[in-house]
């Protein structure tokens, strides 16, 4: 029971962090990592929020790499 509680708390923290990331990502990040997102509708941005909350470390990594290649 304690272990399950701890796991649930960790998942909750992970998802909360994902939510914060998702807000920044749909405003700025998404256009940085994907050309197709230029001129994409707000409907599209909203629809990728749940996925962004779950897969945020992966997208963060892409975002960082995309901004690095731009600097070079």
């Amino acid at each position: 029971m304690v272990i399950v509680s701890i796991i649930l708390i960790i998942i909750a923290i992970y998802l909360a962090a994902g939510f914060v990331f998702a807000v920044a990502f749909i405003v700025k990040g998404v256009t940085k990592i994907d050309e197709g997102a230029h001129g994409a509708t707000w409907g599209f941005r909203l629809i990728i929020i749940p996925g962004t909350i779950v897969f945020w470390p992966f997208l963060l990594n892409k975002w960082i790499r995309a901004s690095k290649t731009k600097e070079e």
Binding site: G36, A40, G43, F44
Partner: peptide, 9 residues
């Protein structure tokens, strides 16, 4: 395909 995304195609 590769054009701009929409929420639902």
């Amino acid at each position: 395909m590769s054009a701009s995304y929409a929420a639902v195609g």
